[in-house]
Computed example of a mutant assay.
Amino acid sequence: MASLVYFRKVAESDSSVEYVFGFDANETQRRLVMDVESHRSQPVDGSIDYAFLKASRKINAMYDETSQWPDRGMSVS
Rank of each mutant, 00 (worst) to 15 (best):
V33Q: 05
S75I: 03
M62N: 00
M34W: 01
D64H: 15
D14Y: 13
G46W: 11
K9G: 03
N26A: 13
K58T: 04
M34H: 05
R31M: 09
D64A: 09
A55P: 06
F7K: 00
R31S: 06
G46A: 10
Y50D: 11
G73E: 03
A55M: 09
E12C: 04
T66W: 07
S41E: 02
D14Q: 14
Y19D: 02
P43D: 00
F21G: 00
R30H: 11
S3R: 14
D14K: 14
D35T: 09
E18K: 00
W69S: 00
S47L: 08
N26G: 14
Y6K: 05
L4R: 10
D24F: 07
R57K: 14
S3D: 14
W69D: 01
V76I: 11
V17I: 12
E65S: 13
S38H: 14
F23Q: 06
Q29S: 13
V44G: 10
E18P: 01
G73A: 05
S41Q: 04
P70E: 04
G73M: 03
H39V: 00
S15V: 08
H39Y: 10
R57S: 15
L32G: 02
V76Q: 12
E37I: 07
V20A: 07
R72T: 00
D71H: 08
K9R: 15
A55G: 11
V10A: 14
G22F: 08
S16R: 03
Q29Y: 10
R72C: 02
G46M: 13
R57A: 15
Y19T: 02
S56E: 11
M34F: 08
S3P: 05
S75A: 13
F23T: 04
S75L: 04
V10E: 15
R31E: 12
W69H: 03
E18S: 03
E37P: 01
P70Q: 07
R72L: 04
E27D: 14
D49N: 15
E27S: 14
Q68Y: 08
A51E: 02
R8G: 01
V33R: 06
A61E: 08
F23H: 07
S77I: 10
W69Y: 07
A11R: 15
S77E: 11
F7E: 00
E12F: 00
V36I: 12
F52K: 03
Q42K: 07
A51P: 04
K9C: 06
L32Q: 01
W69R: 01
M74Q: 02
D14I: 12
A2M: 11
S77T: 13
V44K: 10
N26F: 09
S38A: 12
S75M: 05
M62L: 12
Y6P: 01
L32W: 01
E37G: 10
G22R: 04
D71T: 02
E27I: 05
T28V: 10
A11L: 15
T28R: 02
D49A: 15
V10L: 14
D14T: 09
R31D: 06
